[in-house]
Amino acid sequence: MKKIFVGAIGALATSAALVAHADTVKVNSTAHWVQMDAGQPVEMPNGAKGRTTMRAHATVMQADGSLSSQWCTGHQGVGPSGEAGGAGYCTAFSDNGDMLYISYVLGGPDQGGKWMVMGGTGSYAGATGSGTTKVVSRRSDGQAWTSQSMGSIMTP
């Protein structure tokens, strides 16, 4: 059976760009994550195991050196036959206080994830976009990791 990394929630969540423009912004970022809450373990009668309401925080650095802060909450599980996955949402905060709302879907601990922009506040009101994320390093206990994200964000 695949191992559940309790910190996997944010490992594959997006590391979104927070450079406000009224056009398309390319995302090329590295996020340094720390698990803040491992969530509650659950086990179903069919053998599926998981964690609910996990929380993680990241400091996100864009290729141009700009920084943002990101908080994610989500759920992860491993089915009785070993398939892993999860989903959740994130809020990224820019220095000026604008927020970007992101949802994500992830595969197993060593698989990449996909993210989608759901809008935001301020310069991100009405924003759309999507991309992928992969884990590039992880502490052995799953409590901290680094991820790389690529994609684009369109602002109105």
Results as ranks from 00 to 15, higher is better:
G74I: 01
G120E: 10
V117A: 11
V34P: 03
K26H: 07
S94P: 08
S66R: 12
V6G: 12
A58H: 03
Q143L: 15
P109E: 06
A22Q: 12
H21M: 12
S81R: 11
W115Q: 02
A58I: 00
G50M: 00
S123E: 08
H21D: 12
D37G: 02
D37W: 04
A127V: 08
T24R: 13
A84R: 05
G85C: 02
V60Q: 01
G112N: 09
G77H: 04
G88I: 01
D64Y: 00
A56V: 12
V27Y: 10
L18Y: 05
K49E: 06
S103M: 04
S137P: 14
Q143Y: 14
P45S: 04
M44H: 09
M99P: 10
Q111Y: 06
H21G: 13
S123Y: 07
G142E: 10
L12W: 02
G88W: 02
W115H: 09
G120P: 11
L67S: 07
V60R: 00
T59Q: 04
K3A: 13
T14I: 09
V117R: 04
Y124A: 08
F5I: 08
G119W: 02
H57D: 00
T132Q: 12
V42K: 04
W115C: 03
D98S: 13
G7T: 06
A22M: 06
L100K: 06
A11C: 15
M150G: 09
R139C: 02
V27W: 10
S69C: 00
A56Q: 13
R55M: 02
V25F: 03
F93T: 15
G131S: 13
V135I: 14
S15M: 09
G10F: 01
T30E: 13
A56L: 07
G113C: 07
F93E: 07
V78N: 02
Q35V: 12
Y104H: 15
A58V: 02
G85T: 01
A125V: 11
V6N: 12
W33H: 11
G120C: 13
G10D: 03
T133M: 03
L18S: 06
Q111G: 08
T155S: 12
S123D: 09
T121D: 01
D110I: 03
G142Y: 08
I4R: 12
G142S: 10
Q143A: 15
M36C: 06
T30L: 14
N96K: 14
W33K: 08
N46W: 07
Q40I: 07
S130E: 14
A20M: 04
M99A: 15
V117D: 01
S149V: 01
G112V: 02
